[in-house]
Structure formats: C-alpha cells, structure tokens
Nucleic acid binder design. Structure first.
Lengths: 232, 232
DNA sequence: GATGGTCCATTCCTATAGGATTTGTCTATG
DNA sequence: CATAGACAAATCCTATAGGAATGGACCATC
C-alpha cells in the first residue's frame, strides 16, 4: 500500500494541510476499528512502515499519538501491541465510567443543542434503524458505526471540551468493547428504542429527561451484555 | 542540557527500561508544569532537541504524546505551541467536567480504598496544610503539587481505569487552570478544610458522603475562582 | 503609503543508516 | 530430556541529511 506523499501532490492545488504522519494515524485507526488487527497482536513500526510504503518516522509519531487512546500499548524497547481483549471486569468498569459521563453529556447537550445538531442526531438514529444486523462483524459494522456516532455527537454537542475529552478517553474503548468475548448485537430493537428515547428527550428540550434516558440506556446495555457474556 | 543517553549507561546496572523519548517527555512536562513555557509560546522541535542535546526524533515522539494532554497544540507544518491561557468559559467548562467526574471517583475510591491508599491520601492532605503559600508561583508550587496529588490519588484509588483516564484527560488542564488570569491561592485555609472533609468521609467509609464532600469542594473552588477572576 | 514579489533563515517533515536490544533457533553439555 | 550458551534475524531507537514549507525582511511598483 502506498500513501500519497506531500511530494507528489499536484502543484497549485489547495494545500491539504495534512502530513504523512496524519495519514498513517488514520490508516492505523481504521485498521484497529475494522478489527483487522487482533487484540494482542504486535504492531511493528518497521513492518507498518513497509506496509504503507513510508519511513518508520511518521509511523512512530502516529503510534505515539494512538497510545493515549488505549487502543495500543507500548513497552519500551519492545514496541507496540494492540490492547488485549476486554475482560468482564474491564467491561464493568467501562460501563461505570459511561454512566458517570454520558448522562451528563446528554443533559448539557440538551440545553445547548442546535437545530443542525439535532438533525445530525436524528440521522444517526435513522442509520441505526436501517443498518443491517448480521452475525459476522462485517454485517453489523454500519450499526456499530451509527451507535458510536450517536454517542459522540452528544458528547460534541455538550459544548464542553473537557467532557468531550473525557468521553474520547473512553472512545477507543467504547469501540473495543465489541470484542468483549465476541458479543454481537442482541436485542437490537430494544437498543434502538432506547436511542430513540434519548433523542426524543433531547428534541423535547428536557435536559433531566435526556440524562435519565441516557442513563437508562447505558444500564440496559450493561445488563444485556452481562446476560450474553460467555462464562469465564 | 544533556540527557543521559542509553548508550553511555554503565553496563551491568539494571536496565532503566526508559528510552530517550521518555526522558524528553518528562522534561517537557516539567517545563510546562513549572510555567517555564508561557502559554502561546512556540515549542520548536529542532530547538528543543538542541536544548536537550538529543536529535529531533525523540522530541517529535514526546511532543506527539504530549499533544493529547491538551497542554500543547499542533498545527501541521507549523509546529507545536503551548496551549493558550484559560478563558473564563474554559474554566467554567473544566469545573463542570470535574463535577461530573471527581465525585464519582471519590465514591468509588471510598468503597475500595486500601489502608495504604488512605495513608497516601492523609500524607497529601498533610502536605497541603504545611506547604508554604506565597504570592509568587515558586512559593505555592508545593501547595499546587499536593493539591493535584490528592485528586489524582483518588482517581487512581477508584479502581476504575476508565475513570482514571477520564480524569487524566482533564489532568493537564487541571494544572493549567492556575494560569487562569493569574489567580493564585485564595482562602487556602478553606480549601484545606474541604480536602480534610473529603478525606474524613473516605476514612469513615461512607461513599455517598465522600462524593458529596468532593462535589462541595469543586463547587467552592469554582465559586472562589469566579470571585477572584479579573474582569474580561 | 499600500500592495506585491523575491530572497533567506528557520523550522517542519521524511527518508536513511547504523547501533542497541530483544527474540527465536540451534547446538552443546550435563 | 532439560538446560545453558551462541548465533542470527527482526525490531526498536537515535542520529543525520536533505527536501519542503513557513515567516519575515527587503525592495520594487502602483
């Protein structure tokens, strides 16, 4: 694979303002999101550089940025590895944290949301409804994407940069939780209804109801996942 | 300034497991904490490399890691800059986020804290009491350090890696808020009493009281800062 | 005086080279 | 067979070099 270098860009065109390290970052992120990199797998700097046909330097920078998302871990002199699969305890902790953060985001967003933001949210809910839901990852990828987008939109619409940062500190982890024991989509209809409830509360402009709906949603996500979890 | 390279390390000693980029990271972090780098100031990669007598490569990696803390910002092809001073709005947002996160940390930590953790907390409170408090930064540096340590300890003792990540997402910012209009320490006695209240609630093993004490503390920090804030 | 163009120093960005470390394999020895 | 040591390949880490972009100074032109 060959990434477009800043050198072989047609002159005169508006500068992309994006350097090679940014492309590498996005590519690696896509790999992680797609599940192309399995948990625990080594992410070699030199190997990735060869794969993307760039030098190790931008790969090193991209990985350094990725480390803080929690999706890869680094050990000095040993390199980077994809973060291991979630344990049951990890999952419980993530839900505990989401319960602390996401209802607050919903409450804040509800009182400040713009018509445009509301429209984006409506679209995410709609995509959630129409996305195909099959047993394999490829078949519910769009569903997960819409789910993630819904929650991220609310964090952004909170208007609080720190709450957004806090959510993003969970962001990569929220994606990764789908790897928790290979749990797929269960009771999607119910989850969709919960998202609709959050959306409607936000649309009606009732912050406390929005927070309550979000808390209820996270609670039920946890309950469903625990019910489906494989035995240790 | 010359950092110890891994090359000129005495053989046979236990390996430090820390590479040059780690040293650069810590050095830059110290510069930022100390206020040696003013908000808005450029942090040149080559310049820092010369200053620390290393090559630009580890500096680049260290800065990439620092970026996500919010203490430095990067613009492609233009380099890194120390994040600008907090505005009144930034400060309000930070306090809002702290109110969402820190009481939860206190509640969780209270139900899981170990005797050792409690001892660490007691020490932080004690340091807070005895730290000198003068008008200049150097004179209340220890005070701020103990304050930060107290809150970080609670985040760590929460036993929830995600809540700790969320807190750390605010971490650098919590430090930076002291730059908010140059506000120093006001009513330190009162702040110390609030910390003591949090500690005592935790020591008594009442999670809800601990959460309430922490919420009360953050509320009052906000109130004091707003009262002291310079006019825009 | 304001605008626009050219030159130059600084800085960022990427590639490359080579030393240092880790890891796996292979062999020799008890 | 188990263990220890030697070797080799892969990888990480840092330094260095040079192309590319930025920003400012200087100067010409309107």
């Amino acid at each position: 694979m060959k990434l477009a270098s800043s050198r072989d860009r047609a002159p005169g065109r508006p500068v992309s303002r994006q350097v090679l390290a940014d492309h590498v970052y996005e590519e690696l992120l896509a790999w992680l999101m797609d599940g192309r990199l399995e948990p625990g797998a080594a992410v070699s700097i030199d190997g990735t550089a060869r794969e993307l046909d760039v030098s190790p330097t931008p790969v090193r920078e991209a990985l350094a940025r990725l480390e803080h998302t929690g999706m890869v871990r680094r050990v000095a002199l040993k390199g980077y590895r994809v973060a291991p699969v979630f344990t049951r305890e990890d999952f419980a902790e993530l839900m505990e944290a989401r319960l602390a953060i996401e209802p607050v985001n919903a409450r804040l967003a509800c009182s400040r949301i713009t018509p445009g933001g509301l429209a984006d949210l409506r679209e995410a809910v709609k995509d959630l409804e129409t996305a195909p839901r099959g047993p394999s990852f490829a078949e519910f990828r769009d569903y997960l994407e819409a789910d993630e987008r819904f929650h991220k939109l609310i964090a952004e619409q909170s208007g609080n940069q720190f709450m957004l940062s806090a959510y993003n500190a969970l962001g990569g982890q929220v994606q990764r939780f789908r790897l928790f024991g290979g749990v797929g989509i269960t009771d999607a209809e119910q989850a969709i209804a919960e998202h609709q409830a959050v959306f409607e509360a936000m649309a009606s402009g009732d912050p406390e109801q929005a927070a309550a709906a979000m808390a209820d949603h996270v609670h039920k996500v946890r309950a469903r996942a625990i019910a489906d979890a494989p035995a240790d």
